[in-house]
Design a protein around this nucleic acid. Structure first.
Length: 398
RNA sequence: GGUGGGAUACCGAAGCGGCCAACCGGGGCGGACUGUAAAUCCGCUGGCUACGCCUACGGGGGUUCGAAUCCCUCUCCCACCA
């Protein structure tokens, strides 16, 4: 593949690639010298899952690897320890080093479902930020102005809205920029919300006698709620290490309108090929592609079958948790329906269970129960259903 | 340092002495519908040993027959001025 073809490929599915000419130069130089480009991607180790949102960038990173370049997965362990309050929320909970390390273990595993481990460099920014010291940080802060800081969209917005911005938040992008210095990054990529931070790296590097990195951003994947970008703190994510049925189910529950974006950002299937399918079929296909990607084709098929069985045909799943019931503990050999639901762990609170019963969401062996005071005479193998998809099977004991 | 504003349930946001377990929106849950766990429509949404009881409107104290609502104080936050 020649440089122009590579450039064309790399540019696909990006929202920004700046400056393109510089990337071309870098690619050319790399081709001549045989020295791979260093491509940086920072990840926040605060939550244990990588999501489909990450998968979008990771795919892009993989393309660089396939062209022979080096991927640098940068873990912001230092910056995270300091606590990054960036975004809407003011203060993020502090987490410990142990948790970060724990998370990282699973991150690596997950990331390598997409990346080539051979061409990946895993780094922690505490490596250079710790020794940097106050002096180093002060020096760093002298290289950027408050006015430029306020250019950042979410800063200016929050400033106007009178919501707080801590000084720490100004520091955060600077430290991130310094990471690029330490890593001698040729290019840094990220979600589109990272644009400002990435550009700051460009500005800072020359102060340390380095060539500026190229900046590449990809669109933010919309989460399962259909409105906000996918993120773990927002609870609207699909994790790439989730169980096959989970991934499949979550895909199926995405709003139909999201399909185009998901196909374009996460698959090699052209949208034209699937856009005329029935919306359900379109989603099923996507769901299977995703499960196959992170698990296997067999898992994908199984997930689909399970879905059809439980949700489409509303049948009882093959396996479900069992509840042990000891009749000796109950007078007259019967048990209050609310009590039973509670024991089966199908509900959060008993008030919730009452509502569920009143609203017709509880069934025993397919019979709808509507009386809150209903007394059940348990039998072995009785199937209890609470809500749309929570089941339990009764097992007599004693 | 000064002045003013604010803190309400999972989130956002009303209420400003009894009609408040607290309007409304989001979220969540349930039901109906559907070749989707999509969309749409309807309902529910503090807990409990449940026609009653308990806990709740930043923390503590007070006024009152009665407070989320009034007073005092503490904590935290925001803005403006310096």
């Amino acid at each position: 593949m020649n440089v122009d073809e590579a450039l064309h490929l790399l540019k696909q599915g990006t929202t920004e690639l700046l400056p393109e000419a510089t990337l071309k130069q870098k690619l050319e130089r790399s081709a001549q010298t045989g020295k791979p480009l260093r491509v940086k991607l920072g990840i926040d180790p605060s939550a244990p899952h990588l999501t489909l949102g990450h998968a979008v960038v990771l795919r892009k990173l993989r393309q660089f690897q396939d062209l022979g370049h080096t991927a640098i997965l940068l873990v912001g362990d230092f910056t995270r320890l300091v606590g990054d309050p960036s975004g809407e929320s003011s203060t993020r909970p502090l987490i410990t080093k142990e948790i970060i390390e724990e998370n990282m273990k699973t991150y690596q595993e997950q990331a390598f479902k997409i990346l080539d481990p051979e061409k990946t460099e895993l780094r922690y920014n505490s490596e250079w930020l710790n020794p940097l010291g106050v002096q180093g940080i002060i020096q760093l802060t002298s290289k950027y102005t408050v006015a430029r800081m306020l250019e950042r969209d979410d800063f200016s917005k929050r400033y106007e809205e009178n919501s707080p911005i801590s000084v720490l938040e100004f520091l955060y992008p600077l430290l991130q920029a310094y990471d690029s210095v330490a890593l001698e990054a040729d290019l840094e990529m990220g979600g589109h919300d990272q644009l400002f931070n990435l550009l700051m790296g460009r500005d800072i590097q020359p102060h340390y006698d380095q060539e500026s990195q190229v900046v590449l951003t990809v669109p933010l994947l919309i989460g399962t709620d259909g409105t906000k970008s996918m993120g773990q703190s927002k609870g609207n994510y699909i994790g790439i290490s989730e169980a096959p049925e989970q991934i499949f189910g979550k895909i199926m529950s995405l709003p139909d309108e999201l399909m185009q974006q998901y196909y374009e950002l996460l698959t090699n299937v052209p949208w034209d090929e699937v856009k005329d399918l029935h919306p359900k079929a379109c989603k099923v296909r996507l769901g299977k592609i995703m499960v196959s990607w992170f698990h296997s084709e067999a898992d994908a098929q199984a997930a689909e079958d399970n879905f059809e069985q439980v949700y489409a045909r509303k049948e009882v799943p093959d396996d479900m948790p069992e509840v042990g019931v000891n009749l000796a503990n109950f007078e007259g050999g019967s048990i209050w329906i609310i009590e039973l639901l509670d024991q089966a762990n199908l509900i959060g609170t008993r008030s919730e269970a009452r509502r569920l019963v009143q609203q017709g969401g509880v069934q025993i062996d397919g019979e709808k129960i509507t009386e809150v005071d209903f007394q059940v005479t348990p039998q072995n193998g009785m199937v209890l259903k609470a809500g749309k998809h929570k089941f339990a099977k009764i097992k007599l004991e004693g």
